[in-house]
Design a binder for these strands. Structure first.
Lengths: 218, 218
DNA sequence: TGTAATGTTTACCAATCGGTCAAATTATCG
DNA sequence: CGATAATTTGACCGATTGGTAAACATTACA
């Protein structure tokens, strides 16, 4: 009489924690490449090194697997934005936010692709999180940026689109990694491409957001 | 005795052109959302309003459908970059490139998502195009940008990462449309978001690439 | 150690998958 | 018209899909 998860004792076994971890790790591998619809439980089972019914013992459905994965990864993914500090210096805050996001693109590309896949498919599984917690967090940070602009610390700009542009430019190096590698070619596609990207993006955003004392008409 | 496409007469029938068009249109709908693996011929058939065997009469396999779609869309997709003119004024060239790419994100989001899906999955069907024609085109335009920087017309910067950042920021509004809408909320997610994005991105890239007569150490 | 709860697997199911086939229907053109 | 080629479809195929049932194996713990 096996009760899938959180059995009678309410406490999670050591085995449960290990195996669920193992499964989610494999699920991340698969979902991040093929998206929800394109992934199969068999694929995940093979990567995880366990049988399909065994996966379904820990997660009742493919959706439950995906759901658990999203939940677990979402927090980590938003951490850099949470670290965005209103008290800090705007330039260094933006600089370190870019750097942190780039590091995540480098160190956690699967997580990035997982969300990218979800977005492309219209976010059928995370729409609530987007409109709720995410929007609130972004609203809060956008207000910080707006205050900086008002105080003349950075150029006046739409804070939301600033955030979008930092997201997109940094995540690009995870989501479009193949394209980046292909275009850069073997010579420049080495590990150094993240350094180069960091240098370029910091320059672009820092200089692009400098207050212009002498506005020149186009 | 039906020979699928380009029958005995070698000439394509009116019906052939119409139906192939109709199929690829439906295929774009489906592939752009679910990716290659996640899409089914039945889905495409339903959207196209024809029977599955009829689709397979015009395209022998699901891959052939996807292949034809990619081929047809790739040219259109790279047109803005081709229009990038070495003779023109750097500022206005970059400005109009951004604008054109944003218009494409607005008017052809499915095409954008089709490629995004392909990239996320490791570009199993277009790797050759990336390393061949795409790389050559980017190399050429990167040389233009490098020359501009050398001539002091724009700030010194890595031309490849500049192109990447324009790609990512503009395509973001197609690929991550759900997220953008969710974060902006109902009030600001209207049609105007493309105008706002254009304003922000032009400011960011133009100001961010202005030559700095007085370099200030960090 | 015994035994009940937990964990794992083999065999299987109905539904869906990509794709085929042959028959039926429609368009083309002398 | 008649006939030939082009188009369309219903029925079907083997493989794969998400998921289940139940037997089997292992662990935890009194």
């Amino acid at each position: 009489m096996a009760i899938p998860r959180a059995a009678k004792t309410q406490r999670r076994t050591r085995i449960q924690e290990e195996k669920e971890e193992q499964i989610l790790e494999a699920a991340l591998d698969v979902f991040s490449v093929s998206g929800f619809r394109g992934s199969t439980i068999d694929q995940i089972a093979e990567v995880a090194g366990m049988s399909k019914p065994n996966l379904l013992y820990y997660f009742r459905t493919k959706e439950a697997m995906h759901r658990a994965l999203i939940d677990r990864v979402l927090d980590t993914w938003l951490e850099p934005l949470r670290a965005f500090d209103a008290e800090g210096n705007p330039e260094s805050e933006i600089r370190s936010y870019i750097r942190r996001k780039l590091e995540m693109a480098r160190d956690f590309p699967r997580e990035s692709r997982l969300f990218a896949n979800e977005m492309l498919q219209g976010a059928p599984h995370v729409e609530d999180e987007l409109k709720g917690p995410l929007k609130e967090l972004v609203d809060e940070k956008a207000e910080v940026i707006r205050a900086w602009a008002k105080a003349g610390k950075i150029a006046k700009c739409d804070p939301y689109h600033l955030i979008f542009s930092i997201w997109s430019t940094t995540q690009h190096y995870a989501d479009f990694d193949v394209q980046v590698r292909a275009v850069l070619g073997q010579e420049h596609a080495g590990a150094g491409r993240f350094e180069d990207a960091a240098r370029f993006l910091e320059q672009l955003f820092i200089d692009g957001l400098k207050v212009k004392s002498m506005p020149n008409a186009s």
